[in-house]
Nucleic acid binder design. Structure first.
Lengths: 220, 220
DNA sequence: AAAATTTTTTAGATTTACCTAAAAATAAAA
DNA sequence: TTTTATTTTTAGGTAAATCTAAAAAATTTT
């Protein structure tokens, strides 16, 4: 059984694995808000326990065991987020920190019953897929809004940033999950994007456009 | 803000305070499943932080601050128990350990919304009162079943033991909250008690009778 | 009231997850 | 291909919560 801290490391390594194959010490340190030296210590421990493969100076990759452990934590995190939003009326920008704590509660029965209570949801309030109890989930293929071309349209189905500030901003702009959008123009000067949503035209910054995920997008 | 461990100490000191005024080091050690030496260390820390009053060799008492902190944890524990039983269909003997973890989640909003979601329950699945958000709760006056006399009757409204083994045993005997009971006889030999419940006569050991709490009891 | 017992504390170590500072390895630039 | 910069690791140390063994205080027994 893993400690609270080990679980956080596994989860972060898992998320970093999604974009790069070998996860670097510095990247982990940044995410964990700790120092690289501390990361090296923990990596050795995780390697000893068989959660990661580790070659000095080469970064780490999760083993099958490590990946399963990480997916289990992600599952818990996302189920709790659904609980908070669906049952306790939290906003999507309020759930992250609390779920961050709840995800470490160790009880298989608890999570299975929670899953059932919530009606076996397939995605969390931010559009991220929820692994089932065997760790399986549909690999969703999103396009970042920033990568769409003028004339493209699609549906907002996810976000790649869970900070309260970002989500509140989206809310204010009316950019929530399920909304249909259309790309009208891209500004040369600052890369900001002119889009239609809710029958209105709005301008969003490049930074915002990078973190909005779109599906069902059709050319023109 | 207190650590996980500090919270557990406060909770245990609070519970021990209900029966004795000055809580002893050894008693805390036993409940915490640790050694007296460790307790002395922690007591000093809690005293420094103003949670307890402590005089060497004299045991501890909770300060107002300590008492409030403890009641807050008890509140969380009991609300989570209600959630587990009412919403997730846990049995009353399955909730203790999970609630023991959930009680440490730090979010005022979470607990207030959970309380509301559950309909502001006044007692938990074991009959213990749930403090409101200001820490207030009705001081219930129970009589232990063992203290009733032959001919007395009353209603089961609580238990003073939360172990799964004990609760499962009660369940099997049909001795659940709200049940009406009548004392028929007390065995001289072993102090076991002959009672009527559900229209049947059963015999319960002294040990069991000690941990069943009765209210509305009328003489004869 | 002295002796024996129990309770509590102190002293000194251990483990976990951190840290800083400095050394070593790797990658990038000149 | 050196030099420079970046990344990572090692070495040695800290704080929290625990431990064992032994000393000190309080309580109980005789």
């Amino acid at each position: 059984m893993q400690s609270f801290t080990e679980e956080n490391y596994l989860k972060i390594i898992y998320h970093l694995s999604e974009t790069s194959n070998n996860v670097q010490t510095n990247a982990i340190a940044e995410q964990m808000q700790t120092k690289p030296a501390s990361v090296t210590d923990m990596i050795k421990k995780l390697a000893d326990k068989g959660f990661v493969d580790y070659i000095k100076y080469q970064g780490v990759t999760l083993t099958e065991k490590g990946k399963n452990a990480a997916i289990d934590i992600v599952r818990k995190h996302r189920l709790w987020e659904v609980f908070l939003v669906d049952k306790l009326n939290f906003k999507w920008d309020e759930v992250h920190d609390v779920a961050e704590e709840l995800e470490h509660i160790k009880s298989v029965a608890l999570i299975e019953r929670l899953d059932e209570f919530l009606g076996f949801p397939k995605s969390d309030p931010h559009g991220d897929p929820i692994p089932d109890k065997n760790g399986r989930f549909a690999k969703t293929q999103f396009t970042k809004l920033i990568d769409l071309k003028i004339g493209d349209s699609g549906t907002i189905t996810g976000v790649s940033q869970h900070s309260s500030a970002f989500l509140k901003h989206l809310e204010k702009l009316g950019l929530t999950l399920g909304k249909q959008i259309h790309i009208n123009d891209v500004t040369d000067f600052d890369g900001s994007v002119e889009i239609s949503v809710n029958g209105k035209q709005i301008n969003i910054s490049r930074e915002v456009a990078k973190h909005i995920l779109i599906s069902n997008n059709g050319k023109n």
